[in-house]
Design a protein around this nucleic acid. Structure first.
Length: 601
RNA sequence: GCGCCUGUAGCUCAGUUGGAUUAGAGCGUUUGCUUGCGGAGCAAAAGGCCAGGGGUUCGAAUCCCUUCAGGCGCACCA
């Protein structure tokens, strides 16, 4: 908001320091940070620390902190302020420039109100960003770990979109592979023709079949000869099914298609439930054929070495990059029998993203165990000459575990997303019945969903993505303290005040004697656009989650301490506008967290 | 063995990219606050050798080295 004026002051600080004989002062970069609140607020710089340190390094005998303080005083005396600033003073070794409080407050609040749903939106950029998330395997069911992936990806996509980038959302289900075939085999053998009623029931049934099948195919301790023979026979059948699938056998393909559709239907329903709308669906099964062409290309260009039939097709990444140390290792891009691998398909999919979808920046939301895989993939793309490779980013995250250990589809110990979502809604219904029995029945279902799912999403985004989450029901569905309902409640309260007030004044002057809590709110609102940019650039929805909480917390304090509707007319008008600005900013922040902002709860 | 990630209050986690007397929240514990705009709330108290040790710097939870503890990867799984 003050970039140009600040540059003016920066120039003055530089020349003042130079005049005072600080070596290299005219080159110094002056960084401004917000001053801690002291009745008034503004921006400050610690440049004098650097200046004093530079003097010390230059051989001058000085006590750095003392000298810095002295310099700050001298610099502050020499700065002539542009309009909009009221005073410049030194505080310890800082040089602080303070704003015209009321003018600044009015400006910030109006920006939020006038901007509406677009308040905080960044300038339009030409860069196209694709975020790939939602890559669950089909023939399983969507569990709480998949939910973390989907929410993280969706929040990041919304952040990029709002930050000003053209944003494309991509899903990439794993619809083929041994795990999938295992289910097709077991379904065909034991359950053929059966089909549970209900979308989620069908999806979840496949998970049960998978767990059963895996048990049948896994060697047990002290297994009898008879058991062993049966197990091996089953395994042979499974391999046979895979071969038939590969050969395009119509019967097997039909079975696969049917069961696959059950999974994808459930996935679609869940994504819709979370208000996630994917632009491009890629499937592993569809990358199989095209990916073979990538291998040919790699061999032809000398990047890959073909060791067939004795060995696979490999890329010696370190060697090709000219590295002496072992860093990326050797990647296998095609099996010796000519079949493709996960990496093969990811290479061709990346190529498709670059060439067909003109993606400049490609983000992969995948758990942290795949780090090496993506490093290898990105380096091979670089070797292939794709300059977009350097803008490929693996957003790695820790997975969701249970207090008793890792979730396992094989053992059937998974917490399903659907169960958690249902429980969340159930708990909110109970809370509404207790705390707000007057809420019209017609609103209850909607509100319960918005609060319940919000709580869940916030719990998944409120922890840094590099860290794992131990799933616990009460923590994940918390409605107190640092949680979505707390933030939503702030929104509801702001809304309630505004509703009671009637029409919103079109403008209002803020006095100079603002309450500290008002100042805190204005400061936070002013920071929102910057936070959007940073959260996108750092790939960290957590920053937005923290921001939304901080704003809600400040508003709750304000609400208790500072009367709005009961205040004198002029002050009332200003506070109403401040409240409206808070409501808008909370709504915008929540939207970026894939959480709804209800008007009542 | 090599590489990556993590270690902050009893528990779960933040910490604005090296800065502002005293490192912050939530939960839990203790104590207040509803004739007041919605108490899913507010105010306050207690609780810390920022895993240990070295270093760089005017200044370190943050950067470097090292030790310890946990997790995860490392050529034909996805």
């Amino acid at each position: 908001m003050f970039e140009q004026d600040l540059e003016l002051i920066s120039t003055q600080v530089r020349s003042a320091l130079a005049e005072l004989g600080v070596p290299g002062a005219d080159q110094t970069e002056i960084k401004w940070t917000q001053t801690p609140f002291a009745g008034q607020w503004g921006l400050g710089t610690n440049a004098c620390f650097q200046a004093a340190a530079a003097e010390a390094r230059g051989g001058k005998k000085v006590n750095v902190p003392q000298r810095a303080q002295e310099l700050a005083r001298l610099v502050a005396d020499r700065v002539v302020l542009p309009a909009g600033f009221t005073r410049v003073v030194s505080d310890k070794a800082y040089v602080n420039a303070y704003f015209d409080t009321s003018a600044y407050a009015g400006r910030v609040v109006s920006a939020a109100i006038d901007g509406g749903p677009d308040f905080g939106r960044g300038p339009t950029r030409t860069e196209r960003v694709m975020v790939e998330y939602a890559q669950p395997n089909t023939h399983h069911s969507f569990h709480i770990g998949h939910a973390r992936n989907a929410i993280l990806g969706e929040s990041l996509a919304r952040l990029f979109e709002f930050a000003g980038y053209t944003t494309l959302r991509a899903a990439y289900p794993g619809d083929i592979g041994l795990g999938v075939i295992t289910v097709v085999w077991a379904y065909n053998k034991f359950y053929k023709g059966q089909e549970p009623a209900g979308l989620h029931e069908r999806g979840q049934w496949l998970l049960k079949i998978y767990a059963e099948a895996t048990a049948l195919l896994t060697e047990k301790e002290g297994e009898s000869a008879e058991d062993k023979a049966r197990r091996e026979a089953y395994d042979a059948e499974r391999r046979e099914i895979y071969k038939r699938w590969d050969a395009g056998d119509a019967e097997i393909r039909a079975l696969w298609e049917t069961t696959r559709a059950w999974s994808l239907d459930e996935l679609n329903a869940i994504l819709a439930d979370l208000d996630i709308h994917i632009d491009f669906w890629f499937y592993e099964s569809e990358e199989d054929e095209p990916s073979k062409a990538v291998v040919d290309k790699l061999i032809a260009s000398g990047i890959a070495e073909d060791q067939r039939p004795e060995g696979p097709v490999i890329v010696k990444i370190d060697e090709k990059l000219g590295l002496t140390k072992d860093k990326y290792g050797v990647a296998v891009v095609l099996r010796s029998d000519g079949t493709t691998l996960y990496l093969t398909k990811d290479l061709s999919l990346a190529q498709k993203k670059f060439t067909e979808h003109h993606v400049d920046q490609s983000i992969y939301v995948v758990d942290f165990r795949q780090s090496l895989h993506f490093q290898q993939a990105f380096k091979i793309l670089e070797l292939m000459g794709y300059k977009q490779a350097e803008k490929c980013y693996h957003l790695s995250y820790g997975f969701v575990t249970l207090p008793e250990g890792a979730m396992s589809a094989r053992r059937g110990t998974v917490v399903l997303y659907k169960d958690v979502a249902d429980e969340a809604v159930r708990r909110v219904h109970a809370t509404i019945a207790e705390k707000n029995p007057d809420l019209p029945q017609a609103d209850r279902d909607r509100v319960a969903r918005e609060i319940g799912l919000g709580a869940l999403c916030y719990a998944l985004l409120g922890v840094d993505n590099v860290k794992g989450i131990t799933f616990e029901w009460d923590a994940a569905l918390s409605m107190d303290g640092k949680s979505a309902p707390y933030i939503q409640n702030g929104h509801v309260r702001a809304n309630s005040i505004l509703k009671k007030a009637g029409e919103l004044p079109t403008n209002a002057a803020f006095g100079d004697d603002l309450n500290p809590l008002e100042v805190a709110l204005i400061e936070l609102i002013a920071n929102f656009p910057r936070t959007v940019q940073q959260a996108a650039e750092d790939h960290k929805p957590l920053l937005m989650a923290t921001y939304a909480y901080d704003l809600a917390k400040a508003f709750h304090s304000f609400y208790h301490e500072v009367p709005v509707n009961q205040a004198e007319p002029q002050i009332r008008a200003a506070r109403l506008r401040l409240t409206a600005a808070v409501r808008q900013t909370l709504a915008n922040a929540l939207r970026l967290l894939v959480v709804k902002a209800p008007d009542v709860m």
